[in-house]
């Protein structure tokens, strides 16, 4: 199948699934009513549900899934390791730690402005710090296993600091933080969507701009250099985009597991290529689709109890990693 056909199919599926997400839920909104509300914003209960809850959530899910997946793809190329992703490398944990500093302590209460910008900024700083540590280690040790273990360990350290902060925090703050930490696209406000859009879309366009050198990096640094790439600059740009994306989404939606790791593999299978010029738009659509699907399941499987999003993504994502290892496509 030509990539263009696959892209169109995926796009149609994303739109269809999003419509289902808008219609379906605790309160069902009939499809005709949905179009009516979307066309002329009324002030009925269903209108409020749609405009203030479901629509922001559906958009955040699409953007979030796309952002996590692009971040994961970039990291997999960077480390030439197929089982890395923002969550595995501890990047999400770094972001979590920094976000917990904002949410759980009073250190920043005096600042004149507040979330979402300050949380987002801290989330990004956290992810950059963790990656700095992992990259420093990766430059000394080539082994993929070591890299993963370092990522996990840094993740644990971040967790431990986070939990110490939790022990000292006040109950009310903890409740909000725990909910955030489960990872969810629930409760997005329009200004947060705006932030996600304004930061996320340019970053993803930058990622697409990097797709040519990314392809060359698939052959390793030495070959890439011999083909005329400024490897240092490319790597810096690559890492910057990957971390900024991961930090952005973690700060706003909380840590969401496995999307960043599993979706690039799904896209590779769907498009049967490693060509990043196809894969980057590919993971954007696949990521949006998979995350929307997971969110639909999380909201409705045991309704009215809403399941944490990470529970669903991990449940489907972990087997992907295991099957990759079993097939021996992955060398650690």
């Amino acid at each position: 199948m030509k990539p263009a056909v696959t892209f169109s199919l995926l796009l149609i599926l994303v739109i269809a699934l999003s419509l289902v997400n808008l219609v379906y839920g605790g309160v069902s909104i009939p499809f005709e009513r949905l179009l009516d509300i979307l066309a002329h914003q009324g002030d009925g209960v269903d209108s409020i549900i749609l405009w203030d809850i479901r629509l922001p959530r559906a958009i955040a899910t699409i953007l979030g899934g796309a952002i996590l997946s692009v971040s994961g793809l970039l990291l997999q190329v960077y480390f030439r390791n197929p089982v890395v992703g923002p969550f595995i490398l501890g990047i999400s944990s770094g972001a979590t730690l920094m976000v917990s500093l904002v949410m759980l302590t009073t250190l920043f209460l005096k600042l004149p402005f507040h979330s979402p910008y300050i949380t987002t900024a801290f989330g990004m700083v956290g992810s950059f710090l963790v990656v700095a540590v992992v990259v420093a280690v990766a430059s000394r040790v080539k082994s993929g296993i070591t890299l993963l273990i370092v990522g996990l360990m840094v993740g644990y350290m971040c967790h431990s600091v986070t939990s110490i902060l939790m022990a000292f925090a006040e109950k009310q703050q903890i409740k909000g933080f725990v909910l955030w930490q489960l990872g969810s696209f629930n409760g997005f406000k329009w200004d947060e969507i705006g932030l996600l859009f304004m930061a996320g879309v340019p970053l993803m366009i930058m990622a697409y701009g990097l797709s040519k050198p990314l392809n060359a990096l698939l052959l390793g640094e030495d070959y890439a250099l011999s083909m005329g790439i400024d490897v240092r600059k490319t790597r810096m740009a690559l890492l910057f985009v990957a971390c900024a994306l991961a930090g952005l989404i973690t700060a706003l939606a909380g840590p969401v597991a496995f999307i960043g790791l599993a979706v690039p593999h799904m896209a590779r299978m769907i498009f049967a290529t490693s060509d990043n010029r196809i894969l980057i738009p590919g993971v954007i659509l696949t990521g949006a689709l998979v995350t929307s699907l997971c969110d639909l399941v999380a909201r409705n499987l045991l309704s009215p109890v809403e399941l944490p999003l990470s529970a669903i993504t991990a449940f489907f994502g972990a087997p992907v990693v295991i099957s990759l290892l079993m097939k021996r496509r992955v060398k650690l």
């Binding site: 052959l219 030495d222 070959y223 011999s226 083909m227 005329g228 049967a272 496509r329």
Partner: peptide, 20 residues
Amino acid sequence: QLELARVMAVVLTERVAPPL
């Protein structure tokens, strides 16, 4: 780097096997 790439090419011992 780009000028050099147009004059010189290499074949290395490093095993490369990008999938797909």
